[in-house]
């Protein structure tokens, strides 16, 4: 019996998956800024140095509002945020009002292949706090590359994808589905814990 491994260590290393495992707290937490959401996520927020997916049925149901508190926190700490291949123009006045320090935001425009390359470069470089990308038709392999790049560069990778890929497996550590009417977010997958059964309501848009 030479290969006795302490059970504690196995569990602490997370090589054995346990439902409802207590979160490991070495990496700095990346709170989403929504306490109700942070409470159900195993890392108290976004999984650090990992790829997360945000799935929406259509654009404009609150996917940016979900990210803005995180982006505001990162840019305030002078961590650059790169927006790679956005579907529309990130509108500076609204981002500014949401508290994002625009000095630390860069926008990269590219076609789908160029965007994947750019997103991987940004994640891998260790220079970015977060990288936002829209790999709509990305293969499993491409997503895996992004996940590995996030780990290498210790950066937060956020992939916005259409809702219809929700049933496909994904290497992302966290998958969230944002729905409108009423606005809520549902955790589809979170590495290190069971996804909660209920969805979490999001605050309405500040429209006036």
């Amino acid at each position: 019996m030479g290969a006795v491994v302490a059970l504690d260590r196995l569990l602490a290393d997370r090589t054995v998956w346990r439902g409802n495992a207590p979160p490991r707290t070495e990496a700095p937490a990346q709170p989403t800024g929504f306490p109700a959401l942070d409470a159900v996520l195993p890392f108290g927020g976004w999984p650090p140095a990992s790829l997360s997916e945000v799935l929406t049925a259509c654009d404009g149901v609150g996917e940016l509002a979900l990210l803005w508190p995180t982006l505001a926190r990162l840019t305030a700490a002078r961590r650059p945020v790169v927006v790679v291949g956005p579907p529309y123009l990130p509108y500076a006045p609204a981002w500014h009002l949401a508290g994002v320090a625009l000095d630390h935001v860069a926008v990269v425009r590219a076609d789908e292949r160029g965007a994947l390359w750019a997103a991987e470069q940004c994640l891998r470089s260790s220079a970015c706090g977060a990288v936002l990308c829209w790999p709509a038709r990305a293969t499993d392999q491409a997503l895996r590359r992004l996940q590995v790049a996030s780990e290498t560069g210790q950066a937060l990778g956020i992939a916005f994808r259409p809702e219809r890929v929700a049933d496909n497996p994904s290497p992302a550590a966290l998958r969230l589905r944002v729905q409108g009417n009423p606005r809520r977010v549902q955790v589809l997958k979170c590495r290190g814990a069971n996804p909660p059964a209920h969805s979490i309501p999001l605050p309405p848009f500040a429209l006036s």
């Binding site: 654009d59 404009g60 940016l64 509002a65 803005w68 956005p86 579907p87 529309y88 123009l89 990130p90 509108y91 006045p93 609204a94 981002w95 009002l97 949401a98 848009f205 500040a206 429209l207 006036s208």
Partner: peptide
């Protein structure tokens, strides 16, 4: 209020 996305 201003929107987060603008159509060019």
């Amino acid at each position: 209020a201003r929107p987060g996305w603008l159509l060019e």
